[in-house]
């Protein structure tokens, strides 16, 4: 049982009315924070206090609060999802902070992820990249028996390591180049490793990378910050796989 003491924290939070307004940092204090609270619950408490005072609450994206939906998008004290590795902000608990600490909370910063309001950004660029090729072209019905395709355990485990990406965008947020390579690489690695995804692997690599570049993400310079901060701990390997797929696809380029 944790009997941690209650904490008082000072927060510096980015406030921005909408996409077209200029934003600024505002200072807040939250008192009596329990170390067992999640980071988002701490923000809930702040918002409740703000509403009662008649001040507009801080807008932030969140939904499942169990680390899988990928909605969380908070840059906390200079790191996406805060100081703990392998967790999203909703799974980050206040015991990772100490009494009297000041915490800077910013939205993801990337031109491809424009701020919508306060800490909420528009990540539809990711959806458009998937639309460009992050799928297997099969219609519903008519699929062969599932066991007619043999897939080695290694291949399926590799595919699953990659496909567990939650699309949160922490990789873009932390990358000094705002590169989306880990996200794009994860989908390319997942599908190219499986026989189902192989027939259109070249087309997929070309189209997804073309879309990635078009959205205004930077390019990967192998700092590996994305893999270090990915809440699902997706490996750099997927980026390397993406490049290999792209190189193999060269013969299909027009």
């Amino acid at each position: 049982m944790s009997n941690g003491k209650k904490m008082n924290l000072s927060l510096k939070i980015w406030r921005q009315a909408d996409k077209n307004s200029a934003g600024e940092f505002k200072d807040y204090t939250v008192n009596n924070v329990s170390p067992d609270m999640s980071f988002l619950e701490m923000l809930d408490v702040l918002n409740e206090e703000l509403i009662i005072k008649g001040e507009e609450p801080v807008a932030f994206d969140h939904d499942c609060r169990e680390g899988i939906c990928g909605s969380c998008s908070l840059y906390i004290n200079g790191r996406p999802h805060g100081p703990k590795r392998g967790v999203t902000a909703c799974q980050l608990h206040m015991r990772s902070f100490h009494d009297g600490q000041s915490i800077v909370i910013e939205p993801w910063r990337a031109n491809a992820f424009p701020v919508v309001k306060d800490l909420i950004v528009d990540r539809s660029a990711f959806d458009r990249i998937i639309t460009a090729g992050g799928f297997v072209s099969v219609n519903s019905g008519g699929a062969a028996d599932a066991n007619s395709i043999l897939i080695s355990k290694d291949d399926v485990e590799y595919a699953l390591d990659a496909s567990q990406c939650i699309g949160c965008g922490a990789c873009v947020a932390v990358c000094k180049n705002s590169s989306a390579s880990l996200f794009v690489g994860a989908k390319i690695a997942h599908l190219s490793r499986l026989p189902q995804g192989s027939p259109e692997r070249h087309k997929r690599a070309i189209n997804m990378i073309k879309q990635m570049d078009k959205e205004g993400f930077g390019s990967c310079t192998n700092t590996e910050a994305c893999a270090a901060e990915c809440p699902k701990e997706i490996s750099m390997d997927v980026i390397v796989t993406m490049r290999k797929e792209y190189m193999k696809a060269i013969k299909e380029m027009e």
């Binding site: 799928f135 297997v136 099969v138 519903s140 019905g141 699929a143 062969a144 028996d145 599932a146 066991n147 395709i149 043999l150 897939i151 080695s152 355990k153 399926v156 485990e157 595919a159 699953l160 496909s163 997942h190 599908l191 499986l194 189902q196 995804g197």
Partner: peptide
């Protein structure tokens, strides 16, 4: 039974045994 077929065709990485079967 059709659901499993459909999902596998889409590339859903269901757990496999060493022999490659689901």
């Amino acid at each position: 039974v059709n659901i499993i077929d459909q999902c596998v065709a889409q590339g859903v990485p269901f757990a496999r045994e060493y022999g490659g079967l689901l």
